[in-house]
């Protein structure tokens, strides 16, 4: 069985975001790019399954410009067998999903993994759109993936509970918290061997975006925090009731 991990390339989560060109574009100056945290956990789980002998190969793919190759190399260093980059600057998740779906036609993967959202645009769409376009079943909110005796068992979160599912045939899972505990970090040897692993660049067919980001803004800064005397706890509830009107 082969696993494909869809990876997005996002600014480090502690980045202070700023915009340029009349607030239409992220100011990329000084930004450190990372593998989207969910995708890093998905990759970690895929490699754990490979170590356990249940999976023959783990490949990663990103739709993006050459800039994203640093994170693809990192995925190879962590342990992925092969990386793909579909060479495109995309405007929305639909475009990404469509490019992935076209590419997928000539591939054979048993399990596709995507994260619940990219920590940049948080659009929570690419995974499910890809599955819908490719015509394969999808399952969301997946917090566990195991393979026992060739059987693929998934754990997913439902409103107020959990469910165990069994997959029959290829599928796409949108993964979230729980899929792996700590992201795997590259070893020295991994970094050395990553240089010789394949990173294949694929040209993109033109696809039109369906949405566009017109402008960005920063949220209104919060007013200052009003301090309440720890000796006067009743005062807090008075304020919450009379001033904030939330209780």
């Amino acid at each position: 069985m082969k696993i494909l991990v869809c990876m997005s390339n996002v600014p480090d989560t502690t980045t202070k975001v700023r915009f340029t060109d009349g607030n239409t574009r992220l100011d990329a100056a000084g930004i450190q790019w990372i593998i989207n945290p969910w995708d890093e956990l998905a990759l970690t789980r895929a490699l754990e399954l490979k170590d356990a002998g249940a999976i023959s190969a783990v490949e990663v793919i990103n739709v993006g410009p050459a800039l994203t190759e640093a994170t693809l190399r990192k995925a190879l260093a962590i342990g992925a067998d092969k990386a793909w980059r579909i060479d495109a600057e995309t405007a929305d998740g639909y475009q990404v999903a469509q490019l992935l779906a076209q590419w997928l036609k000539d591939q054979a993967f048993d399990i596709l993994l995507a994260g619940v959202e990219s920590s940049d645009y948080n659009s929570s769409g690419v995974g499910i759109m890809l599955a819908a376009l490719a015509g394969i079943p999808s399952v969301s909110n997946v917090s566990g993936l195991s393979i026992e005796g060739g059987q693929v068992i998934l754990k997913r979160e439902i409103e107020g509970g959990q469910q165990q599912l069994k997959a029959h045939g290829p599928f796409l899972a949108v993964v979230q918290k729980g899929i792996a505990l700590e992201p795997r970090i590259p070893s020295m040897r991994g970094i050395m061997t990553a240089r010789t692993k394949p990173l294949e660049v694929v040209p993109a067919h033109p696809v039109a975006a369906r949405t566009a980001y017109q402008a960005f803004s920063l949220p209104q800064p919060k007013g200052s925090c009003r301090m309440v005397d720890p000796e006067q706890p009743d005062e807090l509830f008075r304020l919450l009731h009379e001033e904030a009107r939330v209780i």
Partner: peptide, 26 residues
Amino acid sequence: LTVERKVYSGKALATVVVHTEKAVMT
């Protein structure tokens, strides 16, 4: 259709324009 949403984990807001006739929103 032009609508606002949060991006960058709540650190910024974005105005999104939809080019298609129909739209789906959460």
